[in-house]
Design a protein around this nucleic acid. Structure first.
Lengths: 236, 236
DNA sequence: CAGTGGTCTAGACCACGGT
DNA sequence: CCGTGGTCTAGACCACTGT
């Protein structure tokens, strides 16, 4: 009976981890070339495909730079891309162990302002659904939301009872989006925003502005203003 | 002579684009299951591996949800992950068409505060290099940086002339990092920060706090406070 | 149990881009 | 030119999980 000469398969995660280890250990310093895929495959005793898979993600995150013929190098400028998830507010609040609450402040049809039109790439006569709402954590103001929705993109929203379900939640469950733009900044609280959030006028407010698109049609533009002290944490 | 029956290879990008198109078109609405890999491979006339590759990235971005046996569905909560690159300040300023400037305000060895120690996982007696610096755009304050560097992790930095090269730039070009934590928030400007940035005390300041790690060793902790009006834009 | 995604293989061809 | 990464294939086995 012949001996079973098959190796245990080598996982791409294992290779990735080992490459990371060598970089951390200084074995492959920034800027240094690393062996090509064929050699690495031989060293690890696996198919080249597997090495490729392992290195692809490292290159995607920017830790490695790959060019045909030139080979693969440890990036000289570890570019550090940060990713963070756009939260579903209710989940976010409940994750912090608080009771979530929601209140609709205003609902109206309105002509888009110039600023909104430019962000959503709309015609000058575009009429949008404008919503202002407050999200609560344990009854305290958590985030104020000023939202514009295009009924042309999402006609169904006109029939939704947005006093009960937040536009955020409804859109998330009913309209997929394929692209989005997110802008982060700090703003002083305007008088009415300060009143809604229950903070002093001029307080430093963390603000997220978001436009989401389905193909080439803008679905919604929203300015979310968080109560003072809000922090967003992500991993690089 | 037999006719050449080979098909042109089907690229995973093409499959990915087509899947996206169907989702955008509403053919596969949120929550709906999509055909399994074998069926899709048959439909596209390619190997299952190629379909897998196409769908993997869509699942990674959260547009699709995949579970063994249950199959693949269009995500009900398109979670929207935003990614943005940690900028090299000089590049960022120059990209905006401004002349970059840099000034070191203070350089000292100091015991880490409790806050810094906890963020960097340091011993109570850890002595760190503390730097305060100002980055300028066209001579105007652009960003104030309060940085702590661990000489244990990066002893070479003690010999660098940080009056000429910013710690940011030096670290980026000389020390790779494998992990990092980024916190974003809005803060009112303290008196000395307001003076450094040339703004009113209490102004809303966009702040990024960052800790970077090489393996399990914290390299640096930095609080970057941007001049009022700063905005960060990313794509989802 | 059985269907589905996850992964690995060995081989092949191609595209890019230094030399 | 020709080395390197990028990709596709056809087949196989495995891991997870809903039924």
């Amino acid at each position: 009976m012949p001996s079973d000469t098959r190796r245990a398969p080598v996982s791409w995660q294992a290779i990735q981890a080992d490459v990371l280890r060598r970089i951390e250990a200084g074995e492959w310093p920034p800027g240094a070339p690393i062996p090509n895929e064929v050699d690495l495959a031989a060293e690890f005793g696996c198919a080249r495909t597997t090495v490729s898979r392992a290195l692809r993600e490292l290159a995607a995150t920017g830790l490695l730079e790959r060019r045909r013929k030139a080979g693969t190098r440890v990036a000289l400028h570890p570019p550090g891309k940060a990713t963070f998830e756009i939260p579903i507010i209710q989940h976010e609040v409940e994750t912090r162990g608080c009771v979530y609450g929601y209140g609709l402040i205003a609902r109206e049809m309105a002509l888009a302002t110039l600023h909104v039109r430019s962000r959503m790439a709309l015609d000058p006569d575009a009429s949008l659904l404008r919503l202002r709402a407050l999200h609560l954590a344990n009854g305290a103001p958590y985030m104020h939301e000023d939202r514009w929705v295009s009924p042309r993109a999402v006609p169904e929203i006109l029939d939704v009872d947005l006093g009960r379900v937040s536009a955020n939640a409804w859109l998330v469950q009913n309209v997929p989006f394929t692209q989005g733009t997110l802008t982060l900044c700090a703003k002083p609280a305007e008088a009415d925003l300060a009143q809604a959030l229950g903070c002093a006028p001029g307080a430093a407010i963390f603000t997220m502005e978001r436009v989401t698109w389905l193909g080439r049609t803008a679905i919604t533009f929203v300015v979310q203003s968080y109560a003072p002290g809000h922090r967003v944490t992500t991993t690089i």
